[in-house]
Amino acid sequence: MSLYPDLKEGTVVVDGIDVRFYDSQRGNGEPPVVLLHGMEGSAEKDFWALFPMLAFTRRVITFDFGLPKDGQDLTLEHCVAQAQAVIEKLAPGSPVALVGYSFGAVVAEATAARKPDLVASLVLIAGWMKTDRHQLVRNGIWRELAQSGSSALSDFNLYSSYSAHYLCARTERDFQEIVEKSRRSSISPVVIKLSDNIDIGAEVQTISAPTLVVGCIHDQIVDVSHSRELFGAIRDSRYVEIEAGHAVVQERPAELFMLIDNFVAAPHATSPGDVYATSTP
């Protein structure tokens, strides 16, 4: 994988599942950043831009969620155990800056609630804590298209992932690249099934880590209202919105990077309840 020069790769086995991890190794003395990818993704697909940006100044670790063999159900417990195993293997004894995106944000919430000692700070990007009707409709369409083998599946993913404005502002070349990328990627049905049934609101309220919640204004997969509620649920949290669709890691990676980098460097530089203003460049 070409996320970063001199990347260390390896595997940990958790619950009999292989989990592939990636580590930039060099850091600046601050807690390493651990990135948790989304439903559709691999670490590389979601973090090809964010990982190197962060790795210029700090150690960055990420991994691909491993799925159970033989079609068994994936559980949130599996995912938390994988995050825990990677953290304890690569950064034993010191808490990390845990950054979750989309489904990875759900895992990050559960990890921060259940294993507070692992987490120095928490960033939740386009996350949620209780699956709502809007998401169920989407998952239903996805299931229907996947089961019927429809070629519309990748277009549906593209259509719901990106903001309309972003897609329309691309050059033809860049748009075709997005289309190709969308055709190559796939979501496992077990991940969709797990995402149908997320309901961890009570746990999220127990999160004590300083937290930055990032909502995406044009998100059609996880409506921005979920991020606003997370901001309400987590005591020591601040909030910011980005003008992007769910694919914020593709649409505005540099803005996301600046927010994460500044926050994890000094999580208490801002106060609980702060709402970041949109800056004018």
């Binding site: 070409s2 996320l3 970063y4 020069p5 090809w48 831009a49 190197p52 940006m53 210029f56 505005r252 990676p253 540099a254 803005e255 600046m258 460049p281």
Partner: peptide, 16 residues
């Protein structure tokens, strides 16, 4: 932000 996202091109990141 589109300009800002080009910076890794200058820092030897192959994908960029």
């Amino acid at each position: 932000w589109a300009g800002e996202a080009r910076f890794p091109q200058r820092r030897g990141i192959e994908s960029f």
